[in-house]
């Protein structure tokens, strides 16, 4: 029996819970060479900024054990080119599109949201809070609940009512639950976690930092336990808030781990660099795992790891095999 894979991000229904992670699918067209993007629950864009950005110098990437350290610096075409070319391209193909936005000031995020609010084809807006706040000496928004909440509230106030606003949290925050709570209080309809924690690698041949930017974001399975911990803590504190879980998902098993911890949507990121079909494969594997464990609906598995010890998994009402 097929598993009902539908899930909800706020009130928006997605056909399945797998999306690409921000910044891991470029404009979308690159992956569309391999498969129909519409088969994913959604596609999350790279973080769109007001002006075009050239990003960081190279080297931008260093491979680490089960991980990838990268500092791309939000290279992108800017919101005008995004709205002129990339978003219509996705919209034409009926791809559910989560638009990630990044800015240096609250005003910049707000201006971006204002540009997106009338654009057709925006399924949700994900606020990338891991950007340095120019007005606070470059301190990253996501480290500070109040700064995050201010951005989220401002974006929420200008965004169309039927487009959910998702706040993307950083595991570098001292208390991720506090930042999550602040964002929800600020009007976030959903939360996504985790953005890359900051890491660093030294090239022992050159005896210099491996990345031109010195530090970079660590991604891949190396950070999965960190990500699952964040999802678990936030879901425990705010069980009613939809969570997009991400961090080192390579397989359906990994996605299932996030679902059990409380995520109703799971993003695949670095895995796409290794396997362009990773998103589709994870959808299929997750469905197989759910079916093998007797689930009829994905929704029944969300947050199931939080059930008290000894409690039964509440979905297991298998009438066919029941003696009644």
């Amino acid at each position: 029996m097929p598993v009902d894979m539908r899930t909800y991000l706020g009130h928006v229904e997605l056909a399945n819970p797998i999306t690409t992670a921000a910044g891991c699918a470029a404009s979308g067209a690159e992956l569309a060479q391999f498969f129909d993007l519409g088969r994913l629950g959604a596609v999350t864009t790279r973080s769109i900024t007001m002006a075009p950005r050239a990003g960081r110098p190279t080297p931008r990437m260093a491979e680490t054990p089960s991980g990838l350290l990268s500092a791309v610096g939000l290279q992108g075409p800017g919101v005008d080119a995004f709205l002129a070319r990339e978003l219509p391209w996705l919209a034409q193909r009926n791809v559910r599109t989560v638009v990630s936005i990044g800015g240096g000031t609250v005003a910049e995020y707000t201006a971006l949201a204002r540009r997106l609010t009338d654009a057709p084809g925006v399924t949700a807006v994900e606020v990338n809070l891991s950007c340095p706040n120019i007005e606070d000496r470059g301190r990253v928004f996501a480290l500070d609940g109040a700064a995050s909440a201010e951005v989220v509230a401002s974006v929420r106030s200008v965004m169309r009512y039927d487009v959910p606003v998702v706040a993307k949290l950083s595991p570098d925050a001292l208390d991720v639950v506090a930042v999550a709570r602040a964002c929800v209080d600020g009007g976030a309809d959903a939360l996504s976690m985790i953005n890359n924690p900051l890491g660093m690698s030294v090239d022992t041949d050159a005896m210099r930092p491996a990345l031109a930017a010195v530090t970079g974001g660590l991604s891949g399975p190396a950070i999965r336990p960190l990500a699952v911990r964040c999802v678990w803590q936030v879901h425990a504190a705010l069980p009613g808030v939809p969570i997009i879980g991400m961090g080192g998902v390579l397989t359906g098993r990994d996605a299932f781990e996030f679902v059990l911890a409380g995520a109703c949507v799971v993003a695949v990121g670095t895995a796409l660099f290794h396997d362009p079909y990773a998103g589709l494969r994870v959808v299929r594997e997750l469905e197989e795992i759910l079916a093998a464990r007797g689930f009829h609906r994905l929704a029944d598995a969300v947050g199931l790891a939080h059930r008290p010890p000894g409690a039964t998994t509440r979905h297991r009402t298998d009438f066919e095999e029941s003696p009644l």
Partner: peptide, 27 residues
């Protein structure tokens, strides 16, 4: 020969400055 992570254009790590037909340098 630039160092790449994906080879398919999604990771944005293998960039270099190249002058386009319009005279503008892009990464």
């Amino acid at each position: 020969e630039e160092r790449m992570a994906c080879g398919i254009g999604v990771c944005m790590t293998c960039v270099l400055p190249v002058i386009g037909d319009d005279g503008v340098t892009r990464m």
